[in-house]
Simulated assay, not measured.
Amino acid sequence: MRRDNPMPSYKGHRYPVEIINHCVWLYFRFPLSFREVEELMLERGVVVSYETIRRRCAKFGQAYANQLNRRRARPGDKWHLDEVFIRINGRQHYLWRAVDQDGNVLDVLVQSRRNGNAAKRFFRKLLKGAEYVPRVIITDKLTSYGVAHRELMPSVEDRRSKYLNNRAENSHQPTKQRERAMKRFTSPGHAQRFLSAFSGISPHFRPGRHRLTALKWRTEMADRFAVWQEVTATDAAASK
């Protein structure tokens, strides 16, 4: 998924780049509140308010996620699509998510419905971001997917089975954990903004440790932190 949004400027910010990107990393990587990030930074001798952390996460979170997405290899040609219930201000909404066969998140969309129009809206967003058509899509037996498939991707094979879509269902787990830690989303827009950035940043630091030896995991994490330094422009800012 490619996005060409430029990185916001650090010019005029009181805190150096290292502190800004560390706060953003803590918030999107772990199930922490802004106040908990504030406390962790205070323990390190950095006095920064939770409101400042909130503003920096809002400003830089999506930009960092976009840069990480730009550096990823092209997603696979098998897409798993699924939707899950989330409650926002007492009302039921649906989080639509697509991942490829390797578990890479392709896109997410928060909507109030899961009818045919909602499915088509998600398919359009997904195709626009991916810029290519998959070979296969795997969905559960929700009829809304069939409507969108017939209109927008008729040439793509559609495999429907609740047993084939475990990869998409499993990809919801970090989001549900984070939703519980945050207590609630305040609005659909808030949920969309957070989950778009979260889906780009959090998986970058989840290389599947259960599949790696300790040495390989440390090496992989070192490489991923190096990419993080690049996308947050830490080295460039430090050299000025």
Score class of each variant (00 low, 15 high):
residue 16 P to L: 12
residue 165 N to E: 05
residue 148 A to S: 06
residue 78 K to L: 01
residue 234 T to M: 07
residue 232 T to S: 08
residue 38 E to H: 01
residue 160 R to T: 12
residue 234 T to I: 08
residue 100 D to Y: 01
residue 118 A to C: 10
residue 216 K to F: 08
residue 129 G to Q: 14
residue 55 R to Y: 15
residue 167 R to K: 13
residue 52 T to Y: 04
residue 23 C to G: 14
residue 217 W to P: 00
residue 93 H to R: 12
residue 147 V to A: 15
residue 153 M to K: 01
residue 90 G to N: 09
residue 140 D to G: 11
residue 93 H to G: 09
residue 215 L to C: 12
residue 41 M to A: 05
residue 87 R to N: 15
residue 129 G to E: 14
residue 26 L to K: 00
residue 102 D to K: 06
residue 196 S to Y: 11
residue 216 K to A: 05
residue 91 R to Y: 10
residue 236 A to P: 02
residue 109 L to H: 11
residue 77 D to S: 11
residue 91 R to W: 05
residue 155 S to G: 01
residue 85 F to E: 06
residue 132 Y to L: 07
residue 120 K to P: 01
residue 114 R to H: 10
residue 113 R to Q: 13
residue 73 A to V: 01
residue 144 S to V: 08
residue 121 R to G: 14
residue 168 A to Q: 00
residue 211 R to A: 13
residue 30 F to T: 05
residue 96 W to A: 02
residue 148 A to F: 02
residue 57 C to K: 10
residue 145 Y to T: 11
residue 77 D to R: 14
residue 186 T to M: 00
residue 24 V to A: 11
residue 240 K to I: 12
residue 61 G to E: 04
residue 138 I to Q: 03
residue 196 S to D: 15
residue 121 R to C: 06
residue 35 R to G: 10
residue 127 L to N: 06
residue 165 N to Q: 09
residue 29 R to W: 01
residue 211 R to I: 01
residue 159 R to Y: 08
residue 185 F to A: 02
residue 205 F to Y: 04
residue 234 T to V: 09
residue 40 L to K: 09
residue 147 V to G: 12
residue 38 E to D: 03
residue 139 T to C: 11
residue 123 F to Q: 09
residue 54 R to C: 05
residue 189 G to P: 00
residue 225 F to Y: 10
residue 45 G to V: 07
residue 216 K to W: 06
residue 7 M to Y: 07
residue 230 E to M: 06
residue 186 T to W: 02
residue 100 D to G: 00
residue 214 A to Q: 09
residue 61 G to K: 04
residue 4 D to E: 15
residue 73 A to R: 04
residue 134 P to F: 01
residue 106 L to W: 06
residue 138 I to N: 03
residue 74 R to L: 07
residue 8 P to N: 11
residue 233 A to N: 09
residue 236 A to M: 12
residue 90 G to Y: 13
residue 78 K to G: 00
residue 81 L to E: 09
residue 32 L to T: 07
residue 149 H to K: 04
residue 57 C to E: 12
residue 231 V to Y: 03
residue 121 R to E: 14
residue 215 L to P: 00
residue 184 R to G: 05
residue 111 Q to E: 09
residue 114 R to I: 06
residue 205 F to L: 08
residue 131 E to H: 11
residue 2 R to T: 10
residue 176 K to D: 03
residue 41 M to E: 11
residue 129 G to L: 15
residue 233 A to P: 02
residue 123 F to E: 10
residue 87 R to A: 08
residue 205 F to S: 05
residue 16 P to R: 15
residue 149 H to Q: 07
residue 8 P to A: 13
